[in-house]
Structures are given as structure tokens and as C-alpha cells.
């Protein structure tokens, strides 16, 4: 049952691809639930662009931030609450890489 309202911001090529840069989404408070809810609006491709089904987590090569904090830096169970802002950047922005993975 949807119970949380979240603002989702899209950046860079995601904006052009999905024709949107800001959405208000109702979801169940989980990250996967949010991505599913966004996919219901933008299409299944969004789910594949953002979620790594095999690993059961957000794709490793993009920036997915809740209230400005990258989820890779958040500890414990990561949930969403009413009024949270989620920013999603496609894997286009990067840094120096002394030991390329």
C-alpha cells in the first residue's frame, strides 16, 4: 500500500530520455518500491536503468542520493519517509581513477 510521498529528481540524460526532471511519487517507503512506482509512470526501461535485478540493489554505476546522501554512504536499513528528496544521476559523472576497477 502506498504510504510515502517522495520527490524524485532526474538529471543529465535521464531528463531527455524520460521527458521529466521532477516527479512526486507515492511509494511503499522502500527503494525498490520507489523505483517500481517511478517505472509505473516512466516505463519499465527506467527500472532497468536504475535497478540491478541480479544483485537486488540500485545499479552500482550511478549516483542515487536521498536528501543529498549517496545511498552507498548510508548505513543499516535504508528507508524513505514522507517529504524525502531522491536525486538520480546516470553513470556519466565521474572522477579520477588511479586504480581503475
Amino acid at each position: 500500500m502506498p504510504n510515502v510521498s517522495v520527490k524524485v529528481l532526474l538529471f543529465a540524460t535521464f531528463r531527455k530520455k524520460y521527458g521529466s526532471k521532477e516527479l512526486i511519487i507515492e511509494c511503499d517507503g522502500t527503494i525498490k518500491g520507489l523505483i517500481n512506482s517511478v517505472s509505473n509512470v516512466l516505463g519499465r526501461e527506467f527500472y532497468d536503468d536504475v535497478y540491478d535485478e541480479k544483485r537486488g540493489m540500485v545499479r552500482d554505476d550511478l549516483i542515487f542520493a536521498i536528501n543529498g546522501r549517496n545511498i552507498k554512504d548510508l548505513k543499516g536499513n535504508i528507508g524513505l519517509k514522507d517529504g524525502d528528496v531522491v536525486a538520480i544521476f546516470p553513470p556519466l559523472a565521474g572522477g579520477l581513477s588511479p586504480h581503475t576497477l
Binding site: I63, N70, K72, D73, A93, G94, G95, L96, S97, P98, H99, T100, L101
Partner: peptide
């Protein structure tokens, strides 16, 4: 450019 690891996650995220 430590921003690479701190924000961009390359080659690892801290």
C-alpha cells in the same frame, strides 16, 4: 581530486 572517491565513487566510494 579526492572528490572522485568522496562524491563520484571512482574507483571506490567513501
Amino acid at each position: 581530486y579526492t572528490v572522485s572517491v568522496e562524491i563520484l565513487g571512482i574507483p571506490e566510494k567513501i
